[in-house]
Write a protein that binds this DNA or RNA. Structure first.
Length: 423
RNA sequence: GCGUCGAUGGUAGAGUGGUCAAAUACGACACGCUGUAAACGUGUUGCCUUCGGGCUUCGGGGGUUCGAAUCCCUCUCGACGCA
């Protein structure tokens, strides 16, 4: 993997670059569609590609449970298995520590509002006897499968092993995504844990890479005629590992984490954990001021249209988020003037496209009334057309931001877009 | 013509003397969703309301009862059976 910065945003941490992986090039900043179970829900890979996406992200824990990482390995790896031949990433399962743990069965999001009054009522979340599917130990996390109730202990080593079996281009260290409802003391403990797990993830990764190279060399020495392209094979088969910075909303912890993780020999970095919407920007800035400039940074699980400007301005190169596909499937569409809930009465006989000047397949071929009809009728195509539109909207928004950096028009574009979107 | 059964809110369908403005599902309406437990979830869905409550509803009419969607009579409509 190679990362090259093309242009910087003068006076800020932002930059446009090119990330080269064994399966192709990613122009950063870029949006990474999420395909948790080796599929971008409701879309086929051609549609994902047509929407302009250059890279996708799948999930370690979910694929480990089903169909099993060994099965994916036998299939020839994720790319071949799911017919996505561009760059791929896998998340480590760290988010499931949160979503199946502290957040399980509760109405908690990793994004909170400072003003959220429910955060002032700790009892609301203190149902310690509430069932959790993820329980954190010092060594790893014990997961109870939501599919069949079986117990699985995931350690950093295990996560990395699974990810090597899955065979994405970029993989992530196993971390603990903490809940925004945890207090500072807990955030600190969790951070120490995540840091130890980062070291162990890195160590396991290096070990597996060494084994892979040794194995490839062994094969090479056995067959003379294969010698030439062999060096390429080494580099193209090697995975890049990103470490993950945590620390919640606390400035000291974020900086401490960025310093610690940034000093380790990772190929790039993820910025994870919970944020308050209002201070996400400063949290990202604290971190990216410390992380080594020459390595790519991925803001995990973000975001909404307005978040990209914040992140990119503060030095983020990659974003992934389920929002465009989940919102789409659930009938909410992005437009330049804000969200549109397509099932609302007003669209039942609206025969205009979702957005007049949108270049996506959905807008070029279908009306609001038709998409609304599909949703009312619970037709599968509705989710597909909506996901295509939303993903096109988001992927291209980030592309436009990238272009605005290259054109020295970032702030003009930001102002213009947000004026309309957040109207 | 006789007999039997049935008629409940937008729809289907519970309820068969008070705890019923009436279960549940669907539909409708509105909202939510940020590294996917999610093609999912939440709220509202007779009328009025100072949100305390008030008022009119279970095919129509009449009756019994302190009290009726629920029991009785009758009418209307429907299904089935017998002529």
């Amino acid at each position: 993997m190679e990362f090259k910065i093309e242009k910087k945003l003068k006076g800020y941490l932002g930059r446009a670059g090119v990330l080269t992986t064994p399966h192709g090039v990613i122009h950063t900043p870029a949006f990474v569609p999420v395909g948790t179970k080796a599929t971008i829900k409701s879309m086929n890979p051609d549609q994902v590609k047509d929407v302009g996406a250059e890279v996708t992200l799948a999930n370690t824990y979910h694929l480990y449970l089903q169909p099993g990482d060994e099965t994916v390995a036998k299939a020839g790896g994720l790319h071949k298995f799911m017919n996505w031949h561009g760059p791929m990433m896998t998340d480590s399962g760290g988010f499931q520590v949160f979503s199946l743990g502290a957040a399980y069965g509760k109405d908690i999001s990793k994004i909170t509002k400072i003003t959220d009054p429910s955060l002032l009522i700790p009892e609301r979340f203190d149902d310690s006897n509430a069932p959790r599917l993820a329980k954190i130990g010092q060594d790893g996390v014990s997961f109870k499968s939501h599919l069949d109730g079986s117990i699985h202990y995931i350690t950093p080593e295990k996560s990395i092993q699974i990810q090597h079996n899955l065979g994405a281009d970029i993989i992530f260290a196993f971390d603990e995504c903490t809940s925004p409802t945890e207090d500072l003391k807990y955030q600190e403990e969790a951070l120490e844990r995540t840091h130890r797990w980062a070291e162990r993830s890195l160590e396991e990764h290096k070990k597996l890479e060494r084994e892979k190279i040794a194995q490839a060399n062994g094969l090479a020495s056995r067959s003379e005629e294969n010698r030439g392209p062999e060096n390429e094979l080494f580099s193209s088969s090697s995975l890049a590992l990103f470490g993950i910075v945590q620390g919640g909303r606390d400035e000291n912890l974020r900086k401490k984490s960025a310093t610690f993780i940034g000093a380790l020999d990772f190929d790039g970095f993820g910025i994870g954990g919970s944020f308050a919407k209002e201070d996400m920007s400063s949290a990202v800035k604290w971190v990216n001021e410390i992380l080594p400039e020459e390595k790519p940074r991925h803001l995990l699980g973000i975001g909404e249209p307005e978040d990209f400007f914040m992140g990119i301005e503060n030095g983020v190169d990659l974003f992934d988020c389920v929002a465009p596909t989940r919102l789409g499937r659930n009938g909410t569409l992005y437009t330049k003037t804000g969200r549109m809930i397509i099932m609302n009465t007003q669209f039942r006989e609206d025969f205009s496209p979702i957005e007049k000047d949108c270049g996506c397949y959905t807008c070029k071929n279908y009306t609001r009334a038709y998409v609304a009809h599909l949703f009312h009728g619970k037709e599968m195509l509705g989710g597909t057309l909506a996901s295509i539109h939303n993903l096109y909207f988001i992927v291209n928004l980030v592309k436009k931001i990238r272009q605005s950096i290259l054109d020295d028009k970032f702030f003009e574009f930001k102002e213009e877009f947000l004026k309309n979107y957040l109207k």
